[in-house]
């Protein structure tokens, strides 16, 4: 699994989002996702959307560890 694979999967589930994924050992990744789809959702709900999108890649252990930061466009601007 490469960062760009994860990036592609997430981009197909979350249109109009800014997604950056890093990680160079094929197992541990860190992703920052800025998406309008996160508006009105709790932090848990936002991250659950990511887990749903990645589905079997998480449960199979292809992705061993994924550190997530999720923002709405408004939250991201205020940082």
């Amino acid at each position: 699994m490469q960062p760009q694979d994860i990036q592609k999967i997430l981009a197909s589930h979350l249109p109009d989002s800014q997604i950056s994924v890093e990680g160079d050992d094929g197992q541990h990744f860190a992703a920052v996702i800025v998406s309008p789809a996160f508006r009105g959702k709790s932090r848990v709900e936002q991250q659950q959307m990511i887990y749903t999108a990645l589905g079997s890649h998480i449960t199979s252990g292809n992705i061993h560890a994924l550190s997530l930061k999720t923002y709405t466009p408004e939250e991201y601007q205020q940082r």
Binding site: R43, V44, Q47, Q48, Y51, T52, I58, T59, S67, L68
Partner: peptide, 21 residues
């Protein structure tokens, strides 16, 4: 839970989050 890691905190039946959250 659709949540892959532990710990998991539940309050009033609702998943609040893991360590980071």
């Amino acid at each position: 839970a659709n949540w892959p890691t532990f710990p998991q905190l539940y309050v009033n039946g609702k998943l609040i989050g893991g360590c980071d959250i």
